[in-house]
Design a protein around this nucleic acid. Structure first.
Lengths: 182, 182
DNA sequence: CTTAATTGCAACATCGATGATGCAGTAATG
DNA sequence: CATTACTGCATCATCGATGTTGCAATTAAG
């Protein structure tokens, strides 16, 4: 088991890493350690190398995202309910772990697989939305899927003061109705 | 004046830089030189340092974007026409220079100012769309502005096979009407 | 064709980031 | 409170990226 102060430092490093790596993927481990308020060697003791640190940050984000996907009940719940519950859950996750998961695509095969599994659940959700008529039949599923992700990231990072419920409303409304006049 | 082969090499380096830096902002100058088919020292002779190379890549993108903004006639042309002309022009620019201009925010003050000037022209265009009733009155201008950029980047990079006219249609339709059923 | 510009290659110096280690001090836990 | 885990600090080695220079070969241009 991990000692309490060590666990605090660990999460501080992961959060600092997620934050700094989101701003600049080339951020040094020294900068991350400093932002987390620990010595550089402490980070090196916990993580064998830079790759292991990045991997841990990605795992932390994937863990949080997976909980949201589970709780949203994307398959069973009524579609509008599931959508809103997913959005309201994933927006805080995106804010807590702002690091872009596309960074890990090359490095970490295990995390990549896990990310694809989560992505597949959202793909299925989009297909369900098409089948049930919530999205127009002529809409391309890949396009809808991509826009959903982009809207989430945008509201999460570029509008950080918008509370999750209102942010979820905004994303859902924009996705379904757009911004144009009737 | 620049010798013809030198000019070819220069544009090759700028394009290779834009492409590789878009994938990985930490790409080395050696990798860029190699992708451009020239020696590393050739790049160093043309650009005093890494920052100067990045700056040149950004300038190239800003030059192309500025031409598009001018030709779109965002102020004078009827709004739907201007929107479509802008989209059809900016999507190829985004593809030719896929590098993210947010990377330069810290480094290059001159480019940053220029980027803000172009951004202001699009802000004004969004305000005009609101004033003329093409966007719903309750739509936040900053949100609309951000979504416009995101849709352009997404269609440009994630759907590279979509021809500019159809890509522009898709972006405009998604922006105005969303993806939901009526 | 002659000249001048440009390039590739090899070699070198420098610098920051990474990673490891020993030790003394400190703090959590039983 | 005694023990053990953890940390900070100082130090060292290594590596890749950056940047420079000299020279011979090539190639565009008048």
């Amino acid at each position: 088991m991990l000692r309490a102060d060590a666990a605090r430092n660990l999460t501080a490093v992961l959060h600092a890493g997620a934050r700094l790596l989101a701003e600049d993927p080339g951020t040094s481990m020294a900068a991350i350690a400093s932002a987390a308020g620990v010595d550089r060697t402490t980070v090196h003791r916990r993580f064998a190398n830079r790759e292991a640190l990045l991997s841990a940050v990605f795992q932390a984000k994937l863990d949080s995202a997976e909980r949201v996907l589970d709780q949203a009940r994307l398959v069973e719940a009524p579609l509008p309910v599931a959508l809103h519950r997913y959005l309201e859950g994933i927006i805080p996750v995106s804010r807590e772990w702002p690091v872009d998961t596309r960074l890990m695509m090359q490095q970490d095969p295990a995390a990549r697989v896990r990310r694809q599994e989560q992505s597949a659940r959202l793909d299925a959700f989009i297909r369900r939305a098409l089948d049930e008529g919530y999205l127009r039949a002529d809409v391309d599923a890949a396009w809808a899927r991509t826009i959903l992700d982009e809207l989430v990231d945008t509201v999460a990072h570029r509008f950080p003061d918008l509370e999750p419920p209102r942010a979820a409303d905004l994303v859902a409304a924009t996705l379904l109705n757009g911004l144009g006049a009737a």
